[in-house]
């Protein structure tokens, strides 16, 4: 496909979908489910009241805080597990036990621990991102080709130097991939995380619009916003990964 088609065709698909949506609303004569125009007007109303951008901002702050905490704690923790077999033997069963528990199941506990505050949803988002990052970092260390470590020892590198010159660069690509995946998961948990304890954000918008006045135009609008913002952040990740990895992408 030519460059123009690469942009135009997906755009056309979106328009077709919106058209089908409009027709379906008209054909069924529903008064509950909003048409694309209703959603656009709803979002316009939010923008007019000045809460659209502040909601997006609040959600981003929460997701980024929880996610960054998971990155900062998860990467060194996971790498340490990968490096010290004894530590892994002791801690890994606990991780494997906690990992399949949905972050949403922690909601009641988060409320007891953190009460009505920003901390509760940030904690849930942290949990969502933490386990994938830990497991990926651990595996990244396991998967370092043994000859890289052997070469490092052969050339007489001290452990800190081996860490800086071999272990970190060797584990960087797989960890980077996991960071993108973990952000996707964190973003997925946003709605649920904002169902508790807070009164702003895109997750709250959806819950509040449904509970307060059955404003389904705002429910759908909130969903679309989550989709669009998530897409934009993922594009940012892809761009960052490409830029950082340009020199050594696998053959």
């Amino acid at each position: 496909m030519r460059r123009g088609e690469l942009i135009l065709l997906p755009l056309a698909a979106v328009l077709v979908l919106a058209g089908a949506w409009q027709l379906a609303v008209m054909a069924t004569g529903t008064t509950i489910f909003p048409s694309p125009g209703d959603v656009a007007r709803g979002l316009g109303e939010l923008a007019g009241r000045g809460i659209l951008w502040s909601y997006i901002g609040d959600s981003l702050v929460r997701v980024v805080s929880g996610y960054l905490a998971a990155v900062i704690i998860g990467i060194p923790f996971g790498m340490a597990l990968g490096w010290f077999p004894i530590l892994e033997r002791i801690v890994n069963p606990i991780i494997q036990l906690l990992r399949p528990i949905s972050p949403l199941a922690w909601m009641p506990l988060a409320v007891i621990w953190f009460g009505v505050s920003n901390t509760a949803p940030i904690f849930l988002i942290f949990l969502a991102a933490f386990f994938p990052i830990v497991v990926a970092s651990m595996n990244a260390v396991h998967n370092i080709p043994p000859m890289y470590l052997q070469a490092g020892r052969n050339f007489g590198l001290s452990t800190p130097r081996l860490m800086a010159k071999v272990i970190v660069p060797a584990t960087f690509p797989p960890i980077l991939v996991s960071l993108r995946i973990a952000f996707g998961i964190a973003w997925l948990v946003l709605v649920a995380a904002e169902m508790i304890a807070v009164d702003s954000g895109l997750g709250y918008l959806i819950i509040d619009a449904r509970n307060a006045g059955k404003r389904y135009d705002l429910v759908v609008g909130g969903m679309l916003l989550i989709g669009v913002v998530g897409l934009m952040i993922d594009a940012l990740f892809r761009w960052g990964t490409r830029t950082l990895m340009r020199r050594e992408v696998t053959e």
Binding site: P145, M147, A151, N154, F155, V166, F172, E248
Partner: peptide, 13 residues
Amino acid sequence: RIFVFQERGVFPW
């Protein structure tokens, strides 16, 4: 005394 592997021992980064 240096050990040389098959060419997979070079650092790709």
